[in-house]
């Protein structure tokens, strides 16, 4: 089983290489195709809205966008979340099949209440998730992302260095696409529409 999984990962990785050699957009995706080169969605975190523990199974049947950030983020996070919200608006009613998981990498400042309110501002599909450092560590490591904290200033404010990628998973929890902050919402909406249609 593990060997078969390893082999599948190799095949996916090498075909990704070949694709990168030609063009990653050959298959008609407008964001970056990363099918199969990362493991399927898996996590255990706390939903800031309900306070309950959620895991990847709870989102089966939805197209999931996974994004790491923090509510004190001055520019990247609000811009990215606004772009995601714009893409969801383009999808119209189909947006109900999409969930945006906004995972805080600054749980010290992002209390459940703060995170809940922040996420809700971008739309009902956006869910703020928190975790302890162990849970956060497992998830960020799984998707080869990281974060770090700058030195606090006189007011105790500090910069957080974090990822800007949005990972997109299909309804079965398999990794499919990577959206960059530079991708246009219309292009993301196009790709999300295709994933929703796949079912």
């Amino acid at each position: 089983m593990a060997a078969a999984g390893g082999r599948a990962a190799w095949v996916a990785a090498l075909s990704a290489l070949l694709l990168a050699g030609c063009s990653a957009r050959d298959r008609g995706w407008r964001t970056t195709d990363i099918s199969g080169i990362m493991p399927p969605l898996k996590f255990t975190l706390t939903d800031s809205k309900t306070g309950g523990v959620v895991n990847a199974h709870d989102f089966r049947g939805k197209v999931v966008l996974l994004y790491f950030g923090y509510t004190h983020c001055p520019d990247v996070c609000p811009t990215t979340l606004a772009d995601l919200a714009a893409a969801l608006r383009e999808l119209g009613a189909r947006a109900r099949d999409v969930r945006v998981l906004f995972v805080s990498v600054d749980p010290a400042r992002d209390s459940a209440a703060v995170l809940k309110e922040y996420a809700a501002a971008f739309g009902p599909e956006v869910i703020g998730l928190r975790g302890d450092s162990e849970e956060l560590h497992r998830l960020t490591r799984r998707y080869r992302v990281t974060y770090g904290y700058g030195r606090p200033d006189a007011h105790g404010d500090y910069e957080v260095s974090h990822s800007s990628a949005v990972y997109v998973f299909d309804t079965r929890g398999e990794v499919r696409l990577l959206a960059r902050p530079t991708d246009r919402p219309a292009d993301l909406a196009h790709d999300l529409g295709r994933l929703i249609a796949e079912g």
Partner: peptide, 18 residues
């Protein structure tokens, strides 16, 4: 160091090891 290849190498564990 081709940027597209570098992206995949940093995301994929098998490619990174290769």
């Amino acid at each position: 160091l081709i940027p597209d290849i570098h992206l995949y190498a940093m995301l994929s564990v098998p490619l990174y090891n290769l």
